[in-house]
Design a protein around this nucleic acid. Structure first.
Lengths: 345, 345
DNA sequence: CTGTTAGCGCCTTCAC
DNA sequence: GTGAAGGCGCTAACAG
């Protein structure tokens, strides 16, 4: 049951431990081809695996980055985790993902764990509640955020990677206006985070620029049940916001949801109220989560280039010098599907 | 930037490193309250965090289990990862999750990484392609699988935790029969894995027992595009199987899908063919993934008790003596929603 | 109850 | 190219 160690390999191969170490760290110049062969053979025969803990203890670095998400059960963050893992793998680095369940205490504990593991850096997928500890982390290792609270005043120390949220809602409005809509609503929970705030800004600017009505419908979290695991909340919030949407003062014929999860909820709510999509009402989301395409009707949305964003985040941590300075903004891509059409006559 | 170490704490607190170690490992009996207080204070003042690598090197154990899933972008496995993380946290243990993308080479590499990290055990969420290495792992650490290939002949060495698949399809058939259906189909990709095979068995037994027609519709993977990240495959497979379902020899009025992802695809396909659910056709899935409730119509399904299963899996690894011997089967729960109804007259 | 000490497995000089 | 040796931070004897 006990693992073979580097000396065992050295003995079997009939070489020194130094050579094994060199071999393991790809310093091939320093040995003859047949030495390499012998080592390779000995390693395979023994099923040898260098012990990560020992290596880390000696070198002081772990090839690991930490990822914090509200919950992996939330489809968007599952995809994000997957993208981050892929990005890290390109740097031969591993990812340790933690679900925080939006619990400040857990966020804190988890950051401490990451530090104890010697994580090279930490990436947070959504705005954390425990801002203090996040900021404190910046003193220890690079911190990259996909979203942060708008009240967070330590932006400079946290690298922010995100989609261009202003552009997202702008494009959404333009798409809807091109279709002929003259009154559009944006449905969102209270915009506490930078991402949401920017989406609101883009919405307001774009509707004003196009000279169409742009009403904000705030879906308040108080009346929806909290579900920490699945983040069902936004879905339920969307469903319950459907009625408010239809009775809004500006009589909107189309709505932009703050994200796809909410859009899907709105869609269900609208259908329950007898509206057909897109004939009676147009709906557009943001994110392009997997189920947007499987929705009925398939949801028009603005896709976040998650993989590119994950690559950038990982690069910030593992190769900070090759990365662009400051935050980075990625262009959203309009994916036209079947939930948007011309307004009813 | 360099982290404080145990000696620094000892010096500041004016005690020995042993006491610090005892303190860190909750051996409080061995010291006076004021010593504890001093230590606590010193730790906080220094922001001390014990180095995990050193601890692991010394004790030989990492408090970590590995989880292998096809992809975290797949909603079911995201939920599973979340459940496993929660279960492990109860044992103060961390989880390192890897997406294998069903690539045998990656499965192998990832298992090796897990070994190098000193994982206490490994859990695999779905049948792996690289069976040899999985079996080899059993010699090093406990291996728990939620599903394995039916050709895998090393079942004894791998603990299998799963829902009672025979019961799942049996309950599905019973529900449908109670509703009045006399001809039911089971839609599945080729049943290469134990889970699927059992589902087929339950279906055949139950339809036979009820004296109703039970046709198997095999959706072949060849005509659907492969999407490794999102496992869209099953969704697309379901969609394309809808036509075959309607033209099946036994004229089924209801279908059981091998899982919810496929059921959602079948539902879309059916609607595209002009069928209304559940008036014209009843549909039932297995899993109860998040989007089943958000589907239109909300999907009747058999829920897997994922959290309980994850708890059992983790317990197998971290407390094998307290765990039940052999594999464990969990009862699925019928969740009746709106995709099933009496057959059309 | 507290201090001292010897490694855990690996990496890296350094002399050979 | 090789072999020896020191030490990364922590734990667990063992003495006191």
């Amino acid at each position: 049951m006990s693992e073979p160690k580097i000396q065992d390999v050295a003995r079997l191969a009939g070489v020194s431990t130094t050579s094994i170490s060199n071999f393991l760290n790809n310093r091939m110049e320093q040995m003859r081809p047949d030495t390499q062969r012998k080592i390779q053979q000995a390693i395979e025969q023994l099923g040898y695996r260098p012990n990560n803990a020992a290596r880390q203890l000696k070198t002081g670095v772990a090839s690991m980055v930490g990822l914090l998400v509200p919950s992996l059960a939330n489809q968007f963050f599952g995809s994000l985790a997957c993208a981050v893992e892929t990005a890290a793998a390109r740097h031969h680095c591993h990812v340790m993902t933690f679900s925080t369940f939006r619990d400040p205490e857990r966020e804190r504990a988890v950051m401490a764990d990451l530090l104890a593991y010697g994580a090279q850096g930490i990436i947070t997928g959504s705005a954390l509640n425990d801002t203090d500890h996040l900021v404190a982390m910046t003193a220890r290792c690079p911190v990259v955020a996909f979203d942060i609270k708008r009240s967070d005043d330590s932006h400079e120390r946290i690298t922010t990677i995100s989609v261009d949220n202003v552009a997202a809602t702008t494009k959404a409005v333009e798409h809807l206006v091109a279709l002929g809509h003259r009154s559009i609503a944006l449905v969102t929970p209270p915009p506490y985070t930078l991402n949401r705030q920017d989406r609101v800004k883009g919405f307001q600017q774009a509707t004003a620029a196009a000279g169409v009505s742009g009403e904000l419908v705030i879906a308040d979290a108080t009346d929806a049940p909290t579900d920490l695991h699945g983040d069902t909340q936004l879905f339920e919030l969307g469903r319950s916001a459907a009625a408010r949407l239809l009775s809004a003062a500006s009589k909107p014929t189309a709505a932009i949801a703050i994200n796809d999860m909410m859009a899907i909820g709105i869609g269900i709510g609208l259908k329950q109220l007898g509206k057909r999509l897109p004939q009676d009402f147009s709906l557009i989301g943001i994110d392009d989560i997997f189920f947007s395409a499987a929705n009925d009707p398939p949801l028009t949305t603005l896709r976040q280039p998650i993989q590119a964003m994950a690559d950038a985040a990982v690069q910030r941590i593992l190769a900070p010098n090759t990365a662009t300075a400051g935050g980075e903004l990625f262009a959203p891509e309009l994916i036209v599907r079947a939930s948007t059409a011309a307004p009813p006559k």
